[in-house]
Amino acid sequence: MISLLLAEWRRTVVETIRYPLETISSMMTLFIVFAGLFYGATYVTHSPIGGGRLTTVVVGYAIWMTMMAATGDLGWSIQNEAQNGTLEQVMLVPWSPVTVFLVRAFMAILAFLIPMVVVVVALLIMTRVHLDWQWLALAPFLAALGTAWGLGLAVAAVALLFKRVGQVLNIVQFGLLFVILAPFARFHAVVWHLVSMVVPFNAQVLLLRNLLSHTRGSDWIWWESGINLALIATMGILSFVGASRIARHRGILGHY
């Protein structure tokens, strides 16, 4: 397993270092999109976003971008491998495809988090928000990341069968924005508990917000975050394994 992790880490590092312009442009995009959203919203509503809401906006944005990257990377990876003619070689290595692509996703998110941290620091300076980071918040963040990979595996399953996932990812990305920001917590308690278990990220993001803004929330939300992670990850793994079987059965692994 360590050899697999190291192989993917070296590949990721080599590509990041060799093509620094891509990393720099992704950082700039992250920053400019936020600045556009932030100042745009302030201008349109004629009221500055401040206090706790600003923390929510910065954290929400960082989470949304990270989850979008984590969700999209697996699908893009499959599409690019098929397009470049290396997907079949990847399927020939003596590791299960789920393991290989999850390790890739892990490495990709590590490479993504480096510019993301730089951007978040820049955002905090720009918006003058003081983020009181708590290490406990790492738990819902990791749960959300696992959920994103589960969702990413489902997108990758679509990519294995149809190869072109651009449109699917567009839908998923805006769907993510909706589920992260939608106030499901205002629903009736029973409905909210059910929704938070099924809809990805909502419970985890709420938990993260609560922890960062020192708001005391229900203890149930921890359980719901975990159940949500287990549910979406299982769904992702099953759909990827199923799609891999179908692609091999139809003989379309190498097609593009």
Partner: peptide, 24 residues
């Protein structure tokens, strides 16, 4: 395999061989 590149074009020859070797 025919019709496949079998290699990563953005990596060097040695990086490709090390990658595919350690993956195996």
């Amino acid at each position: 395999l025919e019709g496949s590149r079998n290699l990563y074009w953005r990596l060097t020859v040695l990086e490709n061989l090390l990658y595919w070797g350690t993956m195996r």
